[in-house]
Design a protein around this nucleic acid. Structure first.
Lengths: 119, 119
DNA sequence: TCTACGTTTCAACGAAAGTTGATATGTAGG
DNA sequence: CCTACATATCAACTTTCGTTGAAACGTAGA
């Protein structure tokens, strides 16, 4: 990931409605949520949400697929990974104790910490 | 970390000069960099940089300390941890394989991956 | 105390982002 | 084909953000 992409991604997340959308999608998992459901969830008008979804999609943070009349959006976990990795790149100049806490914090989610394998 | 703080942090990172400042400070490590050095590094006028530093500081992403005539800024690794943790909270609703890649990406930095201890 | 240096604050301008309402696209069913 | 529904696009307005220049503050040395 280059700076331009990271910039777009962070700017996208720095907006109340968009951050809520991403959080909702991250929580929802790979199955995702329909645009209409998202609109209700984050309490934003449909046309406005569409604008934000486009921006998030363009930033590589979410993906979409059509299912009948609905468009289903889901979190782009790969894009999220790249973004976090970009931010913390070169974090430990020979001092692992510096960024260790950051990795630890992320591992605090339910999933097995260091286990990067596909369970 | 609450949403309001996360919002401020992401918004802060969604700006070219501020993102460069944070990256420079993350790379620099706990020793940090003087405001003047940062101004040269990111190529921003001193008064303008001061504005951005204030915003980053208020967002909990950097800290400052005075050293003689200079003010030294350094990355707030704790704030960064909290931010990333907030974004990925509840990421794996019983499906570790979903967010595993995210943790893995972060562990891709030089420091020992799953090792959260202080080396 | 005076001067030099580094950093910060302030007001004002120009540019960009978010919201709104109306309108268009695309899909499914009668 | 026509209607209903879900989502997307567009133009206009309002607000917010980033930059600039001048000036103030704090610190150190002569």
């Amino acid at each position: 990931m280059d700076e331009r992409q990271a910039l777009a991604a962070f700017a996208a997340l720095g907006q109340e409605h968009r951050l809520r959308v991403v959080r909702a999608l991250v929580t929802a998992g790979p199955d995702g949520l329909a645009a209409g459901v998202l609109a209700e969830t984050v309490n934003v008008a449909g046309n406005n949400l569409s604008f934000h979804l486009k921006e998030l999609s363009h930033a590589g943070l979410i993906t979409s697929r059509r299912e009948g009349k609905s468009v289903i959006y889901s979190a782009a976990y790969g894009g999220l990974s790249d973004l976090l990795a970009f931010l913390m790149r070169d974090c430990c100049q020979g001092r692992p104790e510096v960024c260790g806490s950051v990795v630890a914090a992320l591992s605090a989610c339910d999933c097995p910490a260091g286990d990067t394998a596909h369970a």
